[in-house]
C-alpha cells in the first residue's frame, strides 16, 4: 500500500505543476476578458502558433532555444494586437455573443490554416530534460521549470498591475469604462496594450508547453476549453479566482487520470465545472451575485 501512496503523491505533485501552467494560460485570457469584456475563444490557437514558432526556429533555422522563446513571445503578442484590431474592434459594440463567435471563427481558421501550412504531423522540439528524482518520486524538469516560470511570470504581472500607472488603469477600466477619458486614459489604447500582454502570455505559455507536448494543429483544443473553464470557474476577470481554479482543475485531471484514465480526468473536470456553474455562477471567489 505504501508504494501506492507514493505514486498518488507523485500524481498530486504533477497536478500542482500542471496547475501552475494552466493558471498562467488562464491569466492571459482573464486579463483580456477583464479589460476588453471579450473572450478569446481562439486563445489556445495563438499558443499553438507560438509552439510552431519555437519548433521551426530551433529545428529548421537552428536558433538557440531561448532566442526562439523570445521570438515566439513577441510574435504571438503581435498576433494578439492584430486579432484585436482586425477582428475584435469591429464587433466591440455589437452583441456580446458575436464577439464569442468571431473568435470561434478565428479558432476554426487558425487551426485549419495551421494544418495547411504545417501538416497534421505531431512535431517535437526534441529538447529532453532529466527528471528530478526524490526517493521514489520522479518529476520531469521540463514540468518543474514550466511551473516555476509560470509562477515568476504571474508575480511579475501582479507587480505590474499593482505598481504601475498602466497596470492600475488596466485594473480600473473594468470597474468604470465610461469615465476613463476624464482621468486621461484612452480606452482604445489600453485595449491594445492588454491585447499585447494577453498575446505575450499566450506566447509564454507556448514556450512552456512546447517542452512537454508535441505540437500539432489541433493542440489548441486540448488546452483551449480547459482554459475557458478555469477562467469562468474563477469568475471571469477575477485573476486570483482563476489561479485557484487552475489548481483545482489540474488536480481533478491528474487524480482522475491516476485512478481511471486521463479522459476520465477531463470528464470529471468538465462535469465539476458544469456543477459549479449552478452552485456558484459568479465564480468560486465571487460574492453573492
Amino acid at each position: 500500500m505504501e508504494i501506492f501512496d507514493i505514486f498518488l503523491l507523485e500524481t498530486v505533485l504533477n497536478g500542482v505543476l500542471f496547475g501552475g501552467v494552466l493558471a498562467l494560460l488562464a491569466l492571459g485570457l482573464n486579463l483580456i476578458f477583464g479589460v476588453i469584456d471579450v473572450v478569446w475563444i481562439c486563445y489556445a490557437e495563438l499558443m499553438m502558433i507560438g509552439m510552431y514558432t519555437v519548433f521551426y526556429l530551433t529545428k529548421t533555422f537552428g536558433w538557440n532555444l531561448f532566442a526562439a522563446f523570445a521570438a515566439a513571445i513577441v510574435i504571438v503578442s503581435v498576433l494578439g494586437v492584430l486579432l484585436h484590431v482586425l477582428v475584435i474592434r469591429p464587433v466591440l459594440d455589437s452583441e456580446p455573443i458575436n464577439q464569442l463567435l468571431v473568435t470561434g471563427g478565428m479558432l476554426t481558421f487558425m487551426q485549419a490554416a495551421a494544418t495547411l501550412a504545417f501538416g497534421i504531423e505531431f512535431r517535437n522540439v526534441g529538447v529532453s530534460m532529466p527528471s528530478l528524482v526524490l526517493g521514489e518520486i520522479s518529476l520531469p524538469w521540463s514540468r518543474i521549470s514550466a511551473a516555476l516560470t509560470a509562477l515568476v511570470a504571474m508575480v511579475l504581472l501582479w507587480l505590474f498591475l499593482k505598481k504601475t500607472y498602466l497596470g492600475t488603469a488596466i485594473r480600473a477600466i473594468s470597474q468604470d469604462r465610461g469615465i476613463m477619458p476624464l482621468v486621461g486614459v484612452s480606452p482604445a489604447r489600453i485595449y491594445l496594450t492588454t491585447s499585447a500582454i494577453g498575446g505575450a502570455l499566450a506566447g509564454l505559455g507556448a514556450c512552456l508547453l512546447v517542452l512537454q507536448y508535441d505540437v500539432h494543429p489541433a493542440i489548441g483544443l486540448s488546452f483551449g476549453p480547459l482554459t475557458f473553464m478555469v477562467c469562468v470557474l474563477g469568475g471571469l476577470g477575477n485573476m486570483l479566482g482563476g489561479f485557484i481554479a487552475a489548481f483545482i482543475f489540474a488536480q481533478l485531471i491528474s487524480i482522475g487520470g491516476f485512478y481511471f484514465h486521463i479522459e476520465w480526468g477531463y470528464v470529471m473536470a468538465f462535469a465539476f465545472f458544469i456543477v459549479m456553474m449552478f452552485v456558484r455562477p459568479q465564480g468560486i471567489l465571487g460574492g453573492k451575485s
Partner: peptide, 30 residues
Amino acid sequence: PHRIIELGLSQVPEHRRLFPRLTVEENLRM
C-alpha cells in the same frame, strides 16, 4: 477626450464614479 485633462480641465463626475475596487490611493493615482 482623454487629452482634455492635459489642458488643465478636470472633472468630478456625477455620482462620483470612483473605481470601487481600487484603494483610495490607487484612485488618486489614476
